[in-house]
Amino acid sequence: MVNWFWKKRRQPRRTLAVRSRGDVGDATRVDFAELAPELNRFLGQAAYLQLGYFETLTRGIRATPELARKEALSRAAGAALDKHRGIVRVITERGEDPTELMLPFRENLDAFRRKTIGARQEETLLAVYLTAGMLDDFYLALASSYGETGERVAEILREDGAGGEIVSIIQQTIESDEEWRSLLSMWGRRLVGDTLLVCRGALRPERLAQDEQRIEPVYTELMGAHARRMDAMGLAS
């Protein structure tokens, strides 16, 4: 799950390491100090990602005729917007302009979102749930490189949200017609490559070529958490 997408409940405090949501055991730890981007780049990209999820979910609300689903998506969209506003608040308190920090990532992240918008709304919702989960985990790991500011962003990313609403929609869809299971399983697997490219693009390119092996354990953790999210919904990963 995506932390801003889980049902609201108290969870153990998470350490700054890549792991699946709710997993309180040991996780692979990676020193990102030399790979992590400069702080403003980290903040701008993290803020724009959450804004993008809000936009995608808001469009879903407009396209949904069912009132119950509209309400569920509104809660998920609100959680994404809260995270965006939280990161923007961190940026402004540092005396920076949030728009200027986010603007360099608009083109690439909008292209990423277009790739993860499915032909059917259920595919798009699954994409939001799964990609936000992977990217929230990744940014939690990166946050450990930025001291107090990173900890503030980590706290924002750990906030509970309404992901359970999206999971319920996906599960109800599968129960209504078993053919959805194979379709959504295939779609979920297709999301991994593009999401990992976003992660890779967030790192310092000049150091990445030298430290390729350092990032591999993180990719392994992200894909493992992705598989667990898929399995929890009854989808083959």
Rank of each mutant, 00 (worst) to 15 (best):
P205Y: 02
E212D: 10
S185A: 11
G161Q: 03
Y139R: 09
A68L: 11
Q213P: 00
E148I: 11
E107A: 12
E151W: 10
D97F: 05
A236H: 12
G201H: 11
E93F: 01
L101G: 03
D137K: 00
V198S: 01
K115V: 02
R13K: 09
D160C: 04
G234D: 09
T56K: 08
R158F: 14
I169R: 05
G234Y: 03
E55T: 13
L81T: 03
N3T: 15
Q121K: 10
G44Q: 01
G201A: 09
R89Q: 12
A77L: 04
E55P: 00
N108V: 11
R228S: 13
L196W: 07
R158N: 11
E66G: 07
G201K: 11
N3W: 10
G193C: 05
A154D: 08
R59W: 11
L125S: 03
D110G: 03
T28L: 14
T195D: 00
T124K: 06
A80V: 00
A225T: 01
G22E: 14
D26E: 13
A119N: 15
Q11R: 15
M134W: 00
E55Y: 08
S168L: 12
S74N: 12
F42P: 05
R114K: 12
Q121P: 06
I156P: 07
T220N: 09
I87N: 00
Q50T: 02
I87Y: 00
S168Y: 11
I87W: 01
A33W: 07
L43C: 12
D82C: 01
T131N: 10
L101H: 03
T28C: 11
D31T: 00
L183K: 15
A76T: 04
E155D: 14
Q45H: 08
E212R: 13
I169Y: 14
G133D: 06
R229H: 09
E148Q: 12
R85Y: 08
W6V: 15
W187M: 07
F105C: 03
A36Y: 04
R19E: 08
G133I: 02
E55M: 06
V24Y: 12
E155C: 03
L191F: 05
G164N: 09
R19P: 01
A27T: 07
M134V: 00
L235F: 02
Q11G: 01
V30A: 04
S74M: 15
G133Q: 03
L191S: 06
L140E: 05
R200A: 10
P104K: 05
L109R: 05
L109M: 02
C199Y: 03
T28I: 14
V24I: 11
R13E: 14
R189H: 09
S176M: 10
G52N: 08
L183D: 14
A225Q: 06
R106M: 10
R113W: 09
E178P: 06
G22F: 13
E165H: 12
A47D: 11
I87G: 02
S20A: 14
R13Q: 08
G95R: 05
R229I: 11
A72K: 10
R214C: 06
T116A: 08
H84K: 01
S168D: 13
A202H: 01
S20L: 09
L130I: 09
V30G: 00
M223K: 14
A132G: 06
S176I: 03
E123D: 12
L222I: 08
I166V: 15
R69T: 14
G201T: 02
